[in-house]
Amino acid sequence: MNQHPNQVQAYQPRQQVQSAQPIPMPNRVGQATAVEQSRAVAEVQAAIVVAQQCPRNISLAVSQMNESCRQKGLADRAFFRFPRARQTVSGASVHLARELARCWGNVQYGVSELRRDDEVGQSEMQAWAWDVQTNTRSSSTFIVPHKRDTKEDGPKPLTDMRDVYENNANNGARRLREAIFSILPQWFVEDAKELCNQTLADGGGRTVAQRSAEAIGMFEKGGITRDQLETKLGRKTDQWTHHDIAQLEVIFTSLQRGEVTRDEEFPAERITEEHLKAPTKQPAQVTGDKSEEAGR
């Protein structure tokens, strides 16, 4: 059957298009929530406008980074140490990452707890960092179990609210550190780490002997002897350098924060089969009147 040319329609295959499901919304939104939503949108828009109108000055950012990394207060907190798989992992800390983000400018970052499930015992969290000027963003969504690993009893459930908060904060800080470092230029981060190492090695103008005495005194208060420190560094006290003492300062700070334990950094000396087979020294014989007194 012929159709009139005006009635001819192009053949189009039928497509089954599923209608988008509406996003569930709360039945009632309070005034404070509505104001906060509007404020958040306006804040993001304002940050983008300001970043475009006031772009960062890289020379000024480098100058601010140099000034910050020369401060011993930052250098003392710029690195971390913690055990993993019978090894010690070390690197730049979240404190250094936050300071570098401030120096670089036009950077926003944060950690959010998206959902907490006390019945299952876990929290869904997100860490993010955003370079507003270049629109470079890094984010990570992760699950944090409400547990803490222990060597004696394995994973231990956390029920106290403060313990859960601190556990979430520690895990969030690690992801936040990586998010910030991922959007910063690599050369900027490496220069900052080198300057912090130099600040630790300098020691505020004090001599090696002065810093050695202070380091030994700090560790002895915690029950760690000079011999253990010498074993850790692999050299005697009179051979220590500024870099050796800087390493001890990082270890001491990590011990105070609880990132590592005393046994992990300074394990007890193991008694081997050679020690057991080694001949014992016989006490020297005492002659004269003292031997007679010892025999009485």
Rank of each mutant, 00 (worst) to 15 (best):
R86Y: 12
T225F: 05
G223I: 07
N57Q: 14
G295E: 12
A201P: 00
E293K: 15
E119L: 14
D117G: 07
A201Q: 08
N197R: 15
A10W: 01
Q7D: 12
K193P: 11
R262D: 04
R148P: 00
G288S: 07
T207H: 02
V44E: 11
A61C: 06
V49I: 07
G30R: 00
D76P: 03
G110A: 01
T287Y: 13
S254K: 03
Y11D: 05
Q53F: 09
V120P: 00
W104D: 06
R235S: 10
V50C: 05
A92F: 09
G105T: 03
N135V: 06
E230F: 03
V29M: 11
E119S: 14
Q239S: 11
S138N: 11
T199W: 07
R175H: 11
T199G: 10
S90V: 07
A215H: 00
Q228M: 06
Q285E: 15
G105M: 06
Q53V: 10
A201R: 08
V8I: 12
A278Q: 04
A47E: 00
K193S: 07
T134N: 10
V8S: 01
E259N: 06
N57S: 15
P22T: 06
W128F: 11
L233P: 09
T225D: 13
G203P: 01
V107C: 04
Q52E: 07
T159L: 12
A294N: 12
V29Y: 09
A75R: 02
F142C: 10
M1Y: 12
M25W: 04
N106H: 01
H243N: 07
L74H: 08
S123Q: 04
N171D: 02
G223C: 05
V49E: 03
E273K: 09
T88I: 15
T33K: 09
Q282W: 04
Y165M: 13
E292I: 14
D117V: 08
V111Q: 01
L60W: 11
T272E: 06
L74R: 07
Q12P: 00
T287V: 06
S140G: 02
V132K: 08
A34Q: 10
R226N: 09
A169H: 02
K236T: 14
G223L: 04
S63T: 12
S19T: 11
A213I: 04
Q198K: 13
P5K: 00
Q31H: 14
E264F: 12
E152V: 10
P155T: 04
R162H: 14
G205W: 01
R262T: 14
A101P: 03
Q210Y: 01
A42Y: 03
N106C: 02
R162M: 15
N168C: 12
Q285A: 14
P283Y: 05
Q7G: 03
D191G: 14
G172M: 01
I48Q: 02
V111I: 05
I251G: 01
G203N: 04
I224G: 05
L276K: 02
S90N: 07
R102K: 12
V286A: 10
W128N: 00
M65W: 11
S93Q: 07
F82K: 14
P185D: 13
N66P: 05
D227M: 08
H146M: 10
N66V: 13
W187M: 15
A78P: 05
A42E: 02
T134Q: 06
G222N: 07
V94K: 05
L255Y: 03
V49K: 02
E265A: 05
D160A: 13
G91H: 04
E178F: 06
